[in-house]
């Protein structure tokens, strides 16, 4: 009986260690807004609030952020700026092609954390201007 209980405890220890490392996968849901619909949204929002464009470009090994063409020191500075934006504002995340995806997700996640519902990614598509925004 002793070897059996040893095996059982070994298995139990294995599962306990692995379960603590497992992270649940979730989705950042969003809705693509097509051509005219997107332009309408932009127009409506422009009447209420100015849109904020956050640009991500490569600067050597690191990522340089620009808020409305003004350089931001780091991600914390961008997050601080976003805190002051009204929830109805349009945030445009304009990341250059070579930016690692995780930086874009981090920024998108930060917008959702601050309840900024109107986030778009400029996409140049065959059907015209498209963007995406969190599904409300």
């Amino acid at each position: 009986m002793a070897p059996l209980i040893d095996c059982v405890f070994l298995l139990l220890t294995y599962f306990l260690f692995t379960i603590s490392l497992a992270t649940v996968e979730g989705l950042l849901t969003s809705k693509l807004a097509m051509g005219g619909e997107m332009e309408e949204k932009r127009f409506d929002l422009k009447l209420q609030e100015k849109e904020t464009i956050v640009r991500l470009v490569h600067a050597g090994e690191s990522v340089q952020y620009f808020i409305d063409d003004w350089p931001a020191a780091d991600f914390a500075a961008v997050a601080e700026h976003l805190k002051g934006i009204p929830e109805q504002s349009l945030v445009v995340i304009d990341a250059s092609a070579s930016i690692p995806y995780e930086h874009v997700i981090r920024l998108y996640n930060q917008c959702l954390r601050l309840s900024l519902a109107n986030v778009v990614f400029p996409l140049s598509s065959r059907s015209g201007t498209t963007g995406m925004a969190p599904r409300l």
Partner: peptide, 20 residues
């Protein structure tokens, strides 16, 4: 992929991430 979805007329695109 987002562009392909838009061109194919799919409006719902979700981005998977770990909840951490």
């Amino acid at each position: 992929v987002m562009r392909m979805a838009a061109d194919a007329g799919v409006t719902d695109v979700s981005l998977a991430a770990l909840q951490a």
